[in-house]
Design a protein around this nucleic acid. Structure first.
Lengths: 204, 204
DNA sequence: TCGCGATCTTTTCGCTTGAACACCGGCGCG
DNA sequence: CGCGCCGGTGTTCAAGCGAAAAGATCGCGA
């Protein structure tokens, strides 16, 4: 079933993947032909047939550009989560709403609801270290109302920080998960920008 | 540029997305026609034109099924990382090599080299808590030789655990990042199954 | 040595598909 | 009150594209 691929067949697969990434669509047999300099489109055809026989691709007969990698099918829905710069988990600091790229991952892996407004921030500082959120981690936040005990990105007195949302005696305030840092009592307003739903860390 | 979509146009976009996820290919204008029960294929055509005018999709003129969502293009390469069950970060326990689904995310977000053999494990237990790896986290591991200080999934004396790889006096052994757990000195062999490259946590 | 799979070439056929042209009613807007 | 946009119908054409038939070469394992 999962026979070995020849070098040529690997090249074909590579071209399929590249074409799909660059143009967004699969190449037609004639486009494959021209890319490899074949004199006939049938050469590409037979390669695709061979790849299908080996289970690397699937094809929908009679349809144009209908080549699919089986692995791409049973993949969940993928969301692009924009990264809006960094956020201080230590001292309060103003955060810029500028987009600095994005990360793509399947939302089923995170349990993120489909139509939620989600965004990501890089963490600076160690004030949430006791919640096991480290300097350099990427936190993924969802825009919604916080429940008590949630970890939130909050705009407190004009600056954004990552802290735990605590309610005591009916009054909400922010608590760092690090004994070296004090609680933050909002002077006038407490604007929650997002609630932590996931965390991504990569080893250096 | 980014004008509002009408209800009908949202339905069209939704069908494009669904079709791409289910079948792997974009629908042709006639397939859109039949799905919505149009009497003419031109109806689908004009909708696609409208969506392109509003910037929601891009089209490659003259090519079949050549509808692309612009956001999918500048997305990095996405890898499917298989999940091989769970791993004890507490007590040693045997791990089954059975695949339990997979997670998809773009490898550029993790800095994972392209052709590396990568897999994921769910963490059970708290023995790595001082390295800020919690019970329930998903660790992403790369199969390669460990360097000292790496966090590794190791098969030690027939069982798999997640520990820090330490070398002292020329002898490698495994150390838990939790004072309640003892060091693990391999009785005879120390087989490293993977080195931690990333971590994924989702809030309950 | 026989046969089979991997790689291609040539040629032909016909469905698939995008695209254009003509036209229609409804609705909001200046 | 006309004008542009939305959302359609009906028709026609040409290019895009998969597919099949018939070979040819080469290398490899039975």
């Amino acid at each position: 079933m999962k026979a070995e691929l020849t070098n040529r067949q690997k090249e074909i697969v590579e071209h399929l993947r590249m074409s799909q990434r660059m143009t967004g669509v699969m190449p037609s047999t004639r486009e494959i032909q021209h890319y490899f300099g074949f004199a006939s489109q049938t050469a590409a055809m037979s390669h695709l047939r061979a790849l299908e026989r080996k289970g690397v691709i699937q094809r929908l007969p009679g349809k144009a550009r209908a080549v699919v990698f089986p692995g791409d099918l049973d993949r969940g829905e993928i969301a692009d989560i924009p990264i809006y710069g960094s956020i201080a988990a230590g001292m309060a600091q103003d955060s810029e709403p500028e987009r600095e790229g994005s990360i793509a991952l399947d939302i089923s892996a995170l349990g993120i609801p489909r139509n939620s407004r989600t965004f990501a921030l890089k963490v600076r500082g160690d004030s949430m270290i006791d919640a096991h959120i480290c300097n350099g981690d990427t936190v993924i936040l969802e825009f919604r109302e916080p429940r008590k005990g949630d970890i939130v990105a909050a705009l407190i007195d004009g600056e954004t920080t990552l802290k735990r949302y605590v309610v005591e005696k009916g009054k909400p305030f922010l608590r760092a998960e690090n004994p070296d840092f004090p609680d933050l009592i909002p002077a006038r307003e407490l604007v929650i920008q997002g609630v932590l739903v996931a965390l991504l860390r990569h080893a250096a």
